[in-house]
Simulated assay, not measured.
Amino acid sequence: MRLLFLLFLLLGCLIQTASGVFGDIRNPVTCVRSGAICLPGFCPRRYKHIGVCGVSAIKCCKKP
């Protein structure tokens, strides 16, 4: 039973640390701190969409 508890704890830690990778950026300050830029519309070809800058129309884009 202890082993099962430890496995769930480890899984929870992995999921929590991976949440920042999938676009937790929701404001311009966080976007700029992560080394990205805010652009209206879509991200250019070489940039990756990592979040939004306040509203969903302005995307946070970063070079991979």
Rank of each mutant, 00 (worst) to 15 (best):
I37S: 07
I58R: 09
G51F: 02
C13T: 10
S19W: 04
C60M: 05
L10K: 08
C61S: 06
L10E: 00
L11K: 01
C43F: 10
V21R: 10
I50F: 00
M1F: 09
P40R: 12
F8Y: 14
N27P: 00
V55C: 04
C31G: 04
R45W: 14
L6W: 13
F8E: 07
C38N: 11
I25G: 01
F5P: 01
M1D: 04
P64H: 07
C38D: 11
K48Q: 14
R45V: 04
P64T: 07
R46M: 09
P40A: 06
R45N: 03
S56G: 02
K63D: 03
G20A: 13
V32G: 02
I50E: 00
V55Q: 11
A57C: 03
G23Q: 03
R33C: 09
G54T: 10
F8S: 15
R2P: 01
C53M: 08
C61E: 01
G12A: 13
F42D: 09
C61F: 07
K48E: 07
F42Y: 13
L11D: 01
G23Y: 09
I15D: 07
L9Y: 07
N27A: 03
C43G: 03
Q16S: 15
Y47L: 09
G54Y: 04
P64N: 13
S19K: 00
G23K: 03
V32N: 09
S19R: 12
V29Y: 09
S56V: 14
F42K: 09
C43M: 06
I15V: 15
V55P: 01
R46W: 11
L14G: 11
S56A: 12
V29Q: 13
K62R: 13
T17I: 15
P64F: 06
P44A: 08
L3Y: 14
R2H: 10
I58M: 14
R2C: 04
S34D: 13
C60N: 05
P44I: 11
L3I: 14
L10N: 06
I50K: 02
L6M: 12
H49I: 06
G35D: 00
I25T: 11
M1Y: 07
R45Q: 12
T17G: 01
R2L: 14
L39S: 12
Q16F: 10
V55L: 12
P28M: 03
V29T: 12
F8M: 05
S56T: 13
S34L: 09
K63N: 02
A36V: 02
Q16A: 11
V21D: 02
R26F: 05
P64G: 05
C31Y: 04
P64W: 04
